[in-house]
């Protein structure tokens, strides 16, 4: 953690990743931070997770890439990003000026891609953690293959663990039969934390034109529509593993964030709502801080996962 100006207790996710607020901004919804920094105070949040970085630059999928759906949207951006070289040269210098934790999201076509990107980033100071994207639904035959298999997840996390001492947050897809089996595999292989959920495979259709709205046909559903799915997955994973869980999926308010924390998340990520309300992270972080600093309030540790069932 960099200089903290807040009084809130820090959130320790392990292996050097300490957040001054439990509010992170999710990968794919903050680009590399510059645009949002002009509209909101990023030092008020716990950290931001960069757009997924791959070894080579990627232009992403052809348009149309997004479509609105009830209380949500589907996207098939296709991991458009500047690639590791330009990320380090052009994006990291700005990210380092931010008074918040920087988590770099990484996507690849093969284990070797991930290893190469991580080893190059390990040489760059000022980065706080890696979020490993094993679960992009919009790139055919690539990282998603790993994120749906416990064995493949174990293999890649083991290899990454062997080469980096930085915090490894593994991002999980909900598009599996048993998310806890993937979570357990990642934990056993040395993951420091788990973030979930990535988008839910979805589709939007114009029946009059008999066409899908997205050129990619299917996309990843995000936004408030997926919050109940996300809460169920966070609860399942929280009860299965002992490493910290970072919850996300449709968080649009302080109340939504608190629902994830009480369900077992140590921290949360806000994604799609950044598009709609650029200062939402700052607002939710302030409200959470206020809640936990109210006399008589539980500590974040006491509150986490304190959901009463049965």
């Amino acid at each position: 953690m960099k200089n903290s100006s807040t009084q809130a207790p820090a959130i320790n996710l392990g292996r050097g990743l300490t957040l001054k607020s439990p509010v992170l901004l999710a990968s794919g919804t903050v680009s590399y931070g510059e645009e949002l920094s002009r509209l909101t105070d990023l030092s008020a949040i716990g950290g931001l997770v960069t757009k997924a970085i791959s070894l080579e630059p990627r232009t992403g999928n052809p348009p149309r890439r997004i479509a609105e759906t009830p209380c949500g949207m589907v996207n098939a951006i296709g991991l458009a990003n500047v690639g590791i070289e330009r990320f380090i040269a052009d994006k990291v210098p700005f990210l380092r000026t931010l008074d918040t934790s920087i988590i770099v999201n990484i996507a690849g076509r093969s284990i070797d891609d991930y290893l190469e990107v991580v080893s190059r980033l390990d040489a760059v100071p000022g980065l706080d953690a890696y979020e490993i994207n094993l679960s992009c639904p919009n790139v055919k035959g690539e990282c998603m293959i790993m994120g749906v298999s416990p064995d493949a997840t174990r293999e890649i996390v083991t290899e990454l663990r062997a080469i980096t001492s930085r915090h490894l947050m593994i991002k999980l897809t909900p598009n599996v039969t048993s998310i806890s089996s993937i979570a357990l595999a990642a934990e056993a292989a040395g993951a420091d934390s788990l973030s979930l959920i990535n988008t839910v495979v979805g589709m939007a259709v114009d029946w009059k034109k008999r066409r899908p709205l997205l050129t990619n046909v299917t996309g990843g559903l995000s936004g408030p529509a997926i919050k109940p799915i996300a809460l169920a997955k966070v609860w399942e994973v929280y009860n299965a593993v002992s490493i910290p869980v970072v919850g996300m999926g449709g968080i649009a308010s302080f109340d939504d964030a608190m629902e994830f924390l009480v369900t077992g998340a140590s921290a949360i990520q806000i994604g799609t709502m950044n598009f709609v309300q650029p200062d939402i992270g700052e607002k939710v972080a302030a409200a959470i801080e206020k809640f936990f600093s109210t006399p008589g309030a539980p500590t974040p540790q006491e509150f986490k996962g304190s959901l009463v069932t049965g």
């Binding site: 794919g28 919804t29 903050v30 680009s31 645009e35 949002l36 509209l39 757009k51 232009t59 992403g60 052809p62 348009p63 149309r64 890439r65 997004i66 479509a67 949207m73 996207n75 951006i77 458009a80 950044n274 598009f275 709609v276 650029p278």
Partner: peptide, 16 residues
């Protein structure tokens, strides 16, 4: 174009 955020973070409004 269809747009999401309008300020460069969603990458939804790509045009060739």
């Amino acid at each position: 174009s269809v747009m999401g955020c309008g300020f460069g973070i969603c990458y939804g409004c790509s045009v060739e």
